[in-house]
Design a protein around this nucleic acid. Structure first.
Lengths: 319, 319
DNA sequence: CTGAAAGCGCTTACAG
DNA sequence: CTGAAAGCGCTTACAG
């Protein structure tokens, strides 16, 4: 046999082995998939409107898939649309996905999850509350992050504090509000109902509510926004009205997206490590370090953290 | 036969037909792919660092794929990395993609394109110059857009005009600079070499160069930035130095990303319709309205357009 | 434990 | 023009 022949030089053998590895049998995922009745594709299903979030999540998922032969299939959708569920159904049925990752708010849609179970499609849900078997969840303790924001503002001496929440269709909006209010309550503070407003996580939405909030008399001295986009809206209105941040108004965002550092002054925000969350979600999908059964294992937990910057300060004593 | 039986009510027949269509034969892309020796997947290969660009491009590609059973596989990469080409090689070889869309700057990499041709993988390149057979190109006339910026500033009366370009590894950086300079020359103006700087399309890069530019004496009264991210960096430095935009300094960006409207004052920028570009790229890949041969047909052309906002004004006569 | 066969769900080339 | 067979590149269940 050529393999063990003493006439073959060691050097040559190494070369041959190297070439074998290089050329090496990379199995065709299509054929494997056909035999397995399951593709080597992972779907990311999302309806988050923030580009930064989407791209970071994709990066994280790809981080977790590095070195494998899986591919990442992206599938944005609109939860409001007529064809939302039927589009998803045909996507999932057709592609025979290895699994899908759901991010808020689609991760909170039980009809979608029920459909995934029907098709026996493994999934991992990223959300701000445990909605399912622990092994299928990456949960971000948004309430904790919001509480840090509340303590930060209370610590600076603010008492007239406004809140612009996300839309009620996002659980994160409730969690952030809840964490914020509970922490204020611990300090003997509360958000005046007139200053507790429902936004929609968009820049434009932030603008609309900020116009009303900043027209109030007396004005709030601080505002906690459900995300950075809405905080950017508050900045715009403050600029228009020559309200100085942070002298006349402290602002806190949530997400700590790139927006936060591009605003002037740089925005204090609660950091959500989106890319890490993506990697964790893939680890869960692959069942790393866990019992083999899908959905087994523990919840992956993320604790958002306040990043203080220059948009928050003590309230002006004259105000 | 049940189909034409007079005993079957019209209504029932319609129902049956509807159900047939609903259940209806959705062929398995894995099996088709195996038989075709080509998957029903389209790859998006990119190294653009701007999340907004990436997400808009993905949206555009998906727009073009709507109603088909193709899937979009995302593949970010780093052109600098050691494994850049070998990663891509195994991605392309493994997935047997139906085709790929390349965006700047990977779209300008001839080694990559050569590899795609080796593997017989159809591609469409999005770039600011025609680099290939017309049928494979979506070309954005960045030079035109930059010229509009130049005419806008010249028209306002600026003469001390600075330019922060993108990195030389991006063709768009050259095109934007060229268009800008040629248009200024038409007006008998030029960028002082000390005010003509090379950036890297990032926020941080914009900050670093803006610090030097705004320390010059006399200072430029206007600056044209190769993209919005760098313009955001200029804003930051201007704020730090209490240089008022647009009173003391006019600023123009490029891309017209969401950053442009979130900045204060809203940024005058040259709009690149990224989502439309994505749809066009897919149309070309599918060979819509063209001869069947891949790479046949004409260049798809995009003309970027200046969107004037509040970051540009006539220079202060006292300056 | 090894090795040949059947099958995954399609397409294409070929016989009738 | 129609219809049955072979084949795409794998995996799995089964016979030896």
């Amino acid at each position: 046999m050529i393999n063990d022949s003493p006439f073959v030089k060691e050097e040559t053998r190494l070369k041959v082995n190297a070439i074998i590895r290089e050329v090496g049998f990379e199995p065709d995922p299509q054929a494997r998939g056909l035999a397995f009745r399951r593709s080597f594709l992972i779907g990311m299903i999302y309806d988050n409107p923030t580009p930064q979030y989407v791209v970071s999540m994709q990066q994280g998922l790809l981080d977790g898939m590095r070195g494998t032969s899986y591919g990442l299939l992206v599938h944005p959708c609109e939860r409001g649309s007529q064809t939302y569920l039927s589009d998803l159904r045909s996507f999932i049925e057709r592609q025979k996905l290895f699994g899908v990752i759901l991010t808020p708010s689609v991760s909170e849609d039980e009809r979608l999850v029920k459909m995934l179970r029907e098709f026996d499609c493994p999934y991992v849900r990223v959300a701000s509350v445990v909605l399912d078997k622990p092994g299928t969840m990456v949960v971000t303790h948004d309430a904790n992050g919001a509480a840090e924001a509340a303590h930060h503002l209370a610590g600076l001496g603010h008492t007239r504090i406004a809140h612009i929440s996300g839309p009620p269709s996002f659980r994160s909006a409730h969690e952030r509000r809840r964490g914020f209010r509970e922490a204020l309550a611990e300090r003997g503070l509360k958000v005046d109902p007139a200053m507790d407003r429902e936004g929609n996580y968009t820049f434009e939405g932030g603008i609309a509510i900020a116009r009303e909030l900043l027209a109030l008399n007396p004005r709030p001295t601080a505002v906690f926004c459900g995300n950075d986009e809405m905080a950017a809206g508050v900045y715009k209105v403050a600029h228009e009205l020559s309200i100085s941040i942070p002298k006349d108004l402290s602002v806190i965002g949530f997400d700590d997206s790139t927006t936060a550092i591009q605003l002037w002054p740089p925005l204090t925000s609660v950091r959500l490590p989106v890319r890490d969350m993506g990697r964790l979600a893939i680890d869960k999908l692959f069942g790393k370090q866990e019992k083999k059964r899908p959905g087994a294992g523990d919840v992956a937990e993320i604790f958002p953290k306040l990043i203080p910057r220059e948009s928050t300060a003590a309230p002006d004593p004259r105000a």
